[in-house]
Design a protein around this nucleic acid. Structure first.
Length: 784
DNA sequence: TGGAGCGTAATTTTT
DNA sequence: TTACGCTCCA
């Protein structure tokens, strides 16, 4: 009964696509690849070494299933990032067969199923998804309530423990039972209160998106059975990174047909610290004794020497599946191992090398510099700037919490889900409206006493004598929310605009900008246009869905490997990418392996895998570097070479020692401190939309001529001059939504007017970015 | 109530 | 080095 909605309605009505034959899909594949693509029924484990054409195999396999008669709605493909999901959908679509197929991340699948079966998982419609930031706030609230002082255990740690417990499907009760020590019991208490609050707020956290689905499938076998029947074929990518909850979901969904195909590489498992369980892939054959195992060992990416270094390095690990990497590629240049006196020398030598190779014909986009911790990017940045090398940084957390975006979204969350106390607390005094800590504490106390949400207290604030003093501040706020609620009827982008202007956020940000601050107004305006793109592209656009899409979008989705600038990124962020020339810096004890891993609460093998991931990103040239001392947190600290250097082979490697002591370094200093810093501006001055995760959501990556230089403008101020206002395209700006006769709705990415014609790059949801001469193209401004 | 000023503690971050 | 949280004072 529960399952009716999913099963019957959707399967019929999809016509199977017949262009191209199944045999075509087996062309241009090596033997193991062909086996993986054509394998039909029963469990399949594809162990895919780096650069072995894994994505190709997965997409071809999905297409092959369809072309040999499996209706698309019977296939479920699961990835780890939205980017990967989009990419897979796109590539399957290119093969002519994506329509109707479920291609999701585990978490998006969770949202989808919770929307449908939420009542079985203690979730009401309109639920909010809490990200890590929200989770920590909620943990703090719970700690307050449970009278746990933050001094005893930090909220982050408790959040981490709760997250671990949820991955293991452990309820607060189970957690309490297993807790032997007072600390554990304390965490259990906070966990229980945290859960009560989630429920009261009608919210779920990231882990719930997995846990609740796994519990639901466990507790409602008829649901598991009918979903399992529907999904005749299950494909899961990056299986080495699944945690226990994801493992269970995969098991429940595949138990009927047992057609589970997982792909991955134990050697590239780098998220153990986040609960990923390497055993899931290592013991796949124990779980499915009849599994067929295919090894993709031929590498199409790297030179023989790079691969040899990678292979030798990783053989030092014990927890792995045997694989022998090989390639038909050329031997290539020796892998360089460079040693420096100081971190700055390392950075300068790399910058110099990039300049030299670039003069020899390489593009800046051919280079990537990787490090274990983001903090290492600083010195590199400086060296790049000094030499005028354009670069981009794929930074992690920095993008996560754009305050202005989170504030705006918090308003929307409150409108959609008034029970969301965390969002309400965020906006109750933002912008400031005289509702301070004392008032808020009283409101919280009342909510706790009445066992209700803050919103209910606010709505009845006049009923509480103790709130008499602050009521004049609170009532207008309640009224404001009431007026805003009317805006929910409007299209999503207008609703966002309305919230911005009505809340006063917009005015605040404008003032801040005018008084010389950051242009954060531009960021929230980008949110409006992202909403516009979403509206144009979604089947049934709605605020609630817009918000959950945002919650599930991450920084990772933004890395754009195509631009012509040097990319600097963490080793974690590098997974899945490739570059002709790669530098891995700071290969030192305490950094790689990181201190935390050395201290024992980490995993040395995982650290080695990180280096392996870095090494295997290189197509042609690889440089591994370390220094004898380096500036860390402002202090010059002595460093020693990483233990992993002992795992490298002697052949194919060329070690160079640039450590000629302090004097050489001083020379460098002198030389470079004189270098003109052409036009560099402080990073804080930028309102680059790509800095906010929300902007990168709906593919609204801004690019315009001259932007290859990323955030450091190296050229003379780019010719971003607007044309004479007479142009009939004067209204067209970056972010403007337009309608193309053939491609539909798109968004202006860049625009370049000149005397005779105006060229512009327009990005479309389906076909990506296209360049047009506006005077000639069948294109016009989108009218609402 | 809210801003300034100081002390403290710092991986990685698919969702 | 930097970012955040807390305390203190206007």
């Amino acid at each position: 009964m529960l399952v009716r909605t999913l099963d019957a309605s959707s399967i019929s009505g999809y016509t199977r696509c017949m262009n191209g034959s199944a045999a075509d899909l087996l062309k241009n594949l090596n033997e193991p690849q062909r086996q993986a693509v054509s394998h039909r029924d029963g469990p399949l484990l594809v162990l895919a070494g780096p650069g072995s054409g894994k994505t190709r195999v997965i997409t071809r396999r999905a297409a092959h299933l369809v072309r040999t008669g499996v209706p698309t709605p019977n296939i479920l493909a699961i990835t780890f990032t939205n980017k990967a999901a989009d990419e897979m959908r796109r590539r399957i679509d290119e093969l002519g067969v994506a329509r109707g197929m479920w291609v999701y991340t585990f978490h998006a699948l969770g949202v989808r199923l919770l929307r449908e079966f939420g009542s079985l998982a203690r979730v009401r419609p309109g639920f909010t998804i809490y990200d890590v930031d929200d989770q920590i706030r909620l943990v703090k609230e719970a700690m307050d309530h449970a009278q746990v002082p933050e001094a005893s255990l930090k909220a982050e740690q408790i959040q981490h423990r709760i997250s671990r417990a949820k991955n293991q499907l452990q309820t607060p009760e189970a957690f309490a039972r297993s807790a032997n020590f007072s600390e554990g019991r304390m965490v259990a208490g906070v966990y229980a209160e945290y859960e009560r609050r989630l429920e009261r707020n009608n919210a779920v956290d990231f882990d719930d998106l997995l846990m609740r689905i796994a519990v639901m499938l466990r507790d409602y076998p008829d649901l598991a059975e009918s979903l399992g029947r529907r999904f005749r074929y299950l494909l899961i990518d990056e299986y080495q990174d699944t945690n226990h909850a994801q493992y269970l979901i995969a098991r429940y969904l595949s138990q009927h047909h047992r057609n589970i195909c997982v792909t991955g590489d134990p050697d590239q498992s780098i998220y153990g610290w986040r609960g990923a369980d390497l055993n899931n892939i290592l013991e796949f054959e124990r779980d499915y004794p009849d599994a067929k195992v295919v090894r993709l060992e031929e590498n199409y990416r790297s030179t023989q020497r790079v691969l040899h270094v990678a292979d030798t390095l990783i053989s030092a690990n014990a927890r792995r599946k045997h694989k022998k990497l090989f390639t038909a590629n050329a031997p290539g240049a020796p892998v360089r191992l460079w040693n420096f006196y100081e971190g700055r020398d390392e950075a300068n030598r790399i910058a110099e090398t990039i300049s030299r190779l670039r003069a020899g014909g390489r593009g800046y986009g051919d280079f990537a510099i990787m490090y274990r911790v983001n903090a290492l990017s600083r010195g590199l940045e400086e060296a790049m700037r000094n030499r005028g090398i354009p670069y981009r940084i794929a930074r992690g957390v920095e993008f996560y919490n754009r305050k202005e975006i989170k504030d705006t979204l918090a308003y929307l969350h409150v409108l959609v889900n008034p029970d969301d106390d965390i969002a309400l607390l965020r906006i109750i005094n933002t912008p400031t409206r005289g509702i301070g800590k004392t008032t808020i504490d009283r409101l919280k106390l009342l909510a706790a006493e009445q066992r209700t949400t803050l919103m209910n207290v606010l709505a009845n604030v006049s009923a509480f004598p103790e709130m008499r003093v602050s009521a004049p501040k609170i009532l207008p706020f309640v009224a404001l929310l009431g007026r805003m609620r009317e805006a929910l009827e409007k299209p999503v982008s207008e609703c966002v605009s309305a919230v911005l202007s009505m809340s006063g956020l917009e005015d605040d940000l404008r003032k801040e900008h005018e008084s010389g601050g950051e242009d954060r107004l531009a960021n929230v305006q980008e949110l409006v246009s992202a909403a516009g793109v979403y509206e144009a592209e979604a089947l049934e656009p709605g605020i609630a869905e817009f918000l959950s899409r945002i919650s599930l979008t991450s920084d990772q989705d933004a890395i754009d490997a195509g631009a012509s600038s040097v990319l600097m990124l963490s080793l974690h962020a590098a997974k899945g990418l490739e570059f002709p020339i790669v530098f891995v810096v700071g290969i030192e004890q305490g950094l790689l392996p990181h201190d935390r891993a050395l201290a024992g609460d980490g995993d040395i093998e995982e650290e080695r895998r990180l280096l392996f991931v870095g090494v295997t990103r290189a197509q042609e040239e690889l440089y591994l570097t370390h220094a004898r001392q380096r500036l860390i947190r402002g202090a010059l600290t002595p460093r020693s070479p990483s233990q992993f250097l002992k795992n490298l082979p002697h052949d194919g490697l060329e070690a160079q020692d640039f450590d000629d002591g302090p004097r050489a370094s001083a020379d460098y200093d002198e030389e470079h401190s004189q270098a003109p810093r052409r036009g560099w501006q402080p990073r804080s001055g930028f309102a680059d939309p790509t800095h906010s995760k929300n902007m990168r959501l709906f593919a609204a990556r801004r690019r315009r001529p001259g932007d290859e230089f990323g955030e450091n403008e190296l050229n003379i101020p780019a010719p971003q001059v607007q044309p004479p206002a007479a142009s009939r395209f004067a209204d067209w700006k970056i972010g403007t939504l337009v309608q193309h006769k053939e491609y539909g709705v798109g968004q202006v990415q860049w625009i370049q007017p000149s005397a005779e014609q105006t060229r512009a790059g327009i990005k479309f949801p389906r076909v990506g970015e296209k360049t047009f001469i506006l005077e000639k193209a069948p294109i016009q401004l989108l009218k609402r």
